[in-house]
């Protein structure tokens, strides 16, 4: 699997950092992996595009480190830093909606890419749910940014999440239904996204052909 570095979307870093990341990908023991992990987290919180794909570069570094020294310094410091950010999530949300959305996107992306023996990391299941539940609260549903993020994450990892903990997915969807049905002041775009999500899960995490046409025909034209 020959991955060119463009795949990792690291062009948005300054040149020195790009070099550091490239080295981390090829020869992880040559760099300070704790520093690398914090650079990646910092950048993810600022750059929405990067936060959507940051899991990929993390995955590759984790693999490289295991292969080289059977170590997991990078994964450990990445997860622990992420945990800190998770703990401060409510402050982050109050400070900057964009950063909060980036944080959720990043955690979900890590959940999607990093696996333990091909299984999702159990330690992240509740935190990921906590983030998504937060996005589905009435005050968050008023922001299209947050609804958009909620729906995007569920498209990507909803099925996996439900498999590891179906009960919390049910709870999350109580909120989604309530939001769609009862909440006043939602934009029609937000309602559309929520309705699509309801149909998406009801169809076993697939959109029927007609539903797809309904939701995406405008984009296709």
């Amino acid at each position: 699997m020959e991955n060119s570095t463009e795949d990792y979307r690291i062009q948005s870093f300054d040149l020195d950092t790009q070099v550091l990341l490239k080295t981390a990908l090829k020869d992880p023991s040559a760099v300070n992996l704790e520093k690398v992990s914090s650079i990646i987290v910092d950048h993810s919180l600022k750059d929405q595009v990067f936060s959507k794909e940051a899991g990929r570069i993390c995955y590759t570094i984790v693999q490289a480190e295991v292969k080289q020294s059977n170590g997991n310094v990078f994964r450990r410091s990445l997860l622990n830093r992420l945990q800190q950010e998770f703990k401060g999530r409510e402050e982050t949300r109050g400070r900057s909606l964009q950063e909060w959305v980036c944080l959720v996107t990043f955690i979900c992306n890590i959940f999607d890419y990093l696996k333990v023996n091909n299984m999702p990391m159990a330690a992240l299941v509740h935190p990921v749910y906590d983030c998504l539940m937060r996005l589905a609260q009435p005050d968050a549903l008023m922001n299209e940014e947050e609804v958009d993020c909620l729906v995007l994450q569920l498209h990507r990892i909803g099925e996996q999440l439900e498999k590891v903990n179906g009960q919390r997915m049910d709870e999350l969807f109580f909120l989604v239904r309530d939001g769609f049905l009862l909440q006043e002041g939602l934009t029609s775009m937000a309602r559309l996204l929520l309705l699509e999500m309801l149909e998406f899960r009801a169809g076993g995490w697939l959109l029927s052909k007609t539903a797809h046409t309904y939701y995406y025909s405008e984009i296709a034209d």
Binding site: R75, L79, N80, V116, N117, A122, A123
Partner: peptide, 18 residues
């Protein structure tokens, strides 16, 4: 309590089961 350790414990548990 920290995620890094939790994931490591998790990994070891699965390795042992395997």
């Amino acid at each position: 309590a920290d995620w890094g350790s939790q994931v490591e414990d998790d990994e070891m548990r699965r390795d042992v089961q395997r």
